[in-house]
């Protein structure tokens, strides 16, 4: 009986006007972003691949990113944190695992492709889940869970219980002052070289200007650079702050969902106490791990931030969504950084 009532109810709501479904296609192939078999992810000319200087950790998933501007329109530079994207802009992010990470070009398992679409009601996020045959991906607003396995760079088998976020989880991270916003394509994060094995690296912002995609961009030299967390040409502090920025700062800033904690990890935060130095936790419960402060300079083992990064218990770990595994390399970076800070 319950199922029948549900069935009727869902017909009812689905026939109504629900904004979020109005802007999405049911299948990824419906958008015609790619040329040839979808799984090869060869973009059409109007679909621009991009990279960001430090990416979010998502259980070691590999990612491809593209953006599509409406024909004849440009994205407009506002400040190092923001472009103004025209309505109709679509951001595309595909998550995949090479079966063997030592041969990253071959044998992909593509899990999902997320779209952010800028509509006249604001941005919406949509997860598309790939079928087993890898021929297409289908909109699933309620998300999904999948077991993924691969061989890591050391030749060891790895496994993760991968979460495809539901539409509200997308918002959970992508919200600032209650507005849905993109996170990755910020001028300061695009201010780096695009690197692949096939072609010579090129500077992304320069290329985008050449292609006529950006307007109002100041001299590139004047735009701040956010460090690549893996590139030792940057200082340890800058790399650590870049890592915290992309992994934590989208929530942990004075306008983000984690503002209730008073801990701000966005790149531009300069108040050491707000970054966590000798800052007591507020509502972290067992996430505090018997420790008193978020960051104890010179002492990573006494720092809550390390405790939470090293946990994979959903009641303790941070970020609270988007990973099931501990990012060993990321933890090492933040440990090294905290070790390097002189205690006063």
């Amino acid at each position: 009986m319950y199922e029948v009532i549900k069935y009727i109810w869902i017909i009812f709501i689905s026939l109504g006007i629900s904004g979020i479904l109005d802007y999405a296609q049911p299948k990824l192939s419906d958008y015609h972003f790619f040329n040839g078999p979808l799984k090869n992810q060869i973009p059409n000319l109007n679909v621009i691949p991009y990279q960001i200087s430090t990416p979010l950790f998502t259980d070691y998933a590999h990612k491809l990113r593209f953006l599509v501007l409406p024909e004849g329109q440009k994205m407009s530079y506002i400040n190092p944190e923001n472009f103004d994207f025209p309505i109709g802009t679509i951001l595309i992010k595909t998550f995949y695992y090479p079966i063997d990470f030592r041969e990253p070009k071959n044998n992909w398992q593509i899990i999902e492709t997320r779209l952010l679409i800028n509509t006249n009601e604001g941005w919406f996020g949509y997860p598309y889940i790939w079928n087993a045959e890898q021929t297409d991906a289908f909109l699933e607003i309620a998300g999904d869970r999948q077991i993924v396995s691969w061989i890591d760079l050391d030749g060891k088998p790895q496994k993760a219980n991968y979460l495809v976020p539901n539409v509200n989880m997308c918002k959970g991270c992508h919200v600032s002052e209650n507005q849905f916003l993109p996170i990755g394509p910020k001028p300061r994060l695009l201010n780096c070289n695009f690197k692949t094995t096939e072609i010579k690296p090129y500077h992304q912002l320069e290329k985008m200007i050449q292609m006529g995609l950006i307007e109002n961009l100041p001299e590139i030299e004047s735009i701040p650079i956010t460090a690549n967390w893996e590139d030792s040409h940057f200082s340890l502090e800058n790399r650590a702050r870049a890592y915290l920025d992309i992994n934590c700062g989208h929530c942990h800033n004075s306008n983000g969902p984690a503002m209730t904690s008073g801990l701000y990890l966005n790149y531009s935060e300069n108040d050491l106490h707000k970054i966590g130095y000798y800052k007591t936790p507020v509502a972290s419960g067992r996430g505090s791990g018997n420790l008193k402060y978020n960051i104890v300079p010179g002492n990573p083992d006494e720092s809550i931030i390390i405790y939470r990064m090293e946990s994979s218990d959903s009641g303790i770990m941070m970020p609270e969504l988007g990973r099931k595994l501990v990012h060993k390399e990321g933890v090492k970076l933040i440990r090294d950084w905290i070790n390097s800070i002189e205690s006063n």
Binding site: K6, Y7, I10, I11, I13, S14, S18, I20, A142
Partner: peptide, 23 residues
């Protein structure tokens, strides 16, 4: 969605879908 519910009775997915689509 309906098939999903009728065949799998996946309460969680159905409930979350309603939370997303409710007007």
């Amino acid at each position: 969605f309906s098939i999903n519910i009728l065949l799998f009775s996946n309460f969680e997915k159905d409930f979350q879908t309603q939370l997303i689509l409710v007007e």
